[in-house]
Amino acid sequence: MDTHTDDDTAALRRRWAATAAAAGADQDPAPYADRLLAAWAEPQRRYHTTAHLADVLARVDVLAPHAADPTAVELAAWFHDAVYRPDRSENEERSAALAERALPELGVGPARTAEVARLVRLTVTHDPAPGDTNGEALCDADLAVLAGDPGNPDAYAAYAAAVRAEYAFVPDEAFRTGRAAVLRQLLDLPRLFRTPYGAAHWEAPARRNLATELAELTTPTRDPRPGT
């Protein structure tokens, strides 16, 4: 559930205005902020909320020196889950299409618009090509949640619980099976994080968290009755 305050939302609005200006927008950015923030606050969201948006933007700030076009990465962060329905598989494509419609209206040039849409679509796989520094920055920022928070030992558990809440319509056993498959796919990747910062600071704790969650999901529940 999103716990952002009015002050947090105001900060996001200011950030959007600054990013739009840096992107060369020549239209009033406020209506676009209204629509984006309304989308990120839709009631079906429990993890993919404005809090997640703010977290990804904060990670983008950390990784900006790595990116060839930090402004494109910021815009992609704003749009990467702008369309989100947990029961749909085309969220990234629809989010990219939204960026392709909205950014030209805002006055953002075609080359940067195309790059933003490409980056949004890349979050389907989180597998940027070698040398794709923009893609590496966005994907690492999006996956940084897997590393938890050194200052909050409950951060990863809260993330996992929010993901489960978004999929409350899925029966428990089906969710456990599907979630375990996702975790295995992530753990099988040779590298979760592609930027030097992500590799140094997030890779090891993320793998520990993923392995712990996978063990919890796949350990049989013992029957507490006597004789079992």
Rank of each mutant, 00 (worst) to 15 (best):
A161S: 12
R14G: 15
P196M: 11
H126S: 12
W40S: 07
Y167H: 15
V73P: 02
T9S: 13
A181N: 10
D87H: 13
A199M: 07
Y167F: 15
V83S: 10
A97C: 09
A168K: 05
A168H: 14
R191L: 11
T19G: 05
A147M: 04
D8T: 11
T133F: 06
V170P: 14
G109M: 02
A137M: 05
V124F: 06
D172G: 14
T133E: 12
N209D: 08
A147N: 03
P224S: 03
A99M: 01
D142G: 05
P196N: 03
R14S: 15
T219W: 12
H66V: 06
E216D: 14
A215M: 08
A96D: 00
P190H: 05
A67F: 03
S89F: 10
N134P: 05
A33W: 09
Q44T: 14
A144R: 09
P128T: 00
C139S: 15
G151C: 04
V145K: 04
P70L: 06
H48Q: 02
R112A: 07
W78P: 11
H48M: 07
R121M: 06
Y167T: 04
A25I: 04
A64V: 01
A76L: 02
E173M: 08
L192P: 11
A11K: 06
F193M: 02
T19V: 15
D34N: 09
R184L: 08
P190C: 05
L53A: 04
N134L: 11
E136Y: 05
A33L: 13
P104G: 01
Y84T: 01
A82P: 11
G109D: 08
A102W: 15
A165N: 02
A117V: 02
R225T: 13
G131R: 02
V145L: 08
G131E: 01
D55F: 14
Q27N: 13
D55I: 07
A160S: 11
T218D: 03
L183G: 05
P43W: 11
R112Q: 13
A204I: 10
D172Q: 13
R45G: 07
A64N: 01
A206Y: 07
A38W: 10
P86D: 01
E90F: 10
A21Q: 14
D28N: 15
M1K: 04
D87F: 09
L75T: 00
E173P: 01
T219H: 12
A111P: 02
A82L: 11
R15T: 14
P43G: 09
G198W: 05
H4E: 13
H201Y: 09
A204N: 10
A199F: 12
A20G: 11
H66G: 06
A141R: 00
A147K: 03
A165H: 05
T3K: 08
A168I: 10
R45D: 09
A22G: 06
L143I: 02
D61M: 11
R59V: 11
G227W: 08
R101A: 12
L217V: 01
G135N: 02
D34C: 09
R112P: 11
Y167I: 10
A68E: 14
R207K: 10
Y197P: 04
L63C: 03
L119I: 00
E93A: 14
P153K: 01
V60R: 00
E42F: 11
A58F: 13
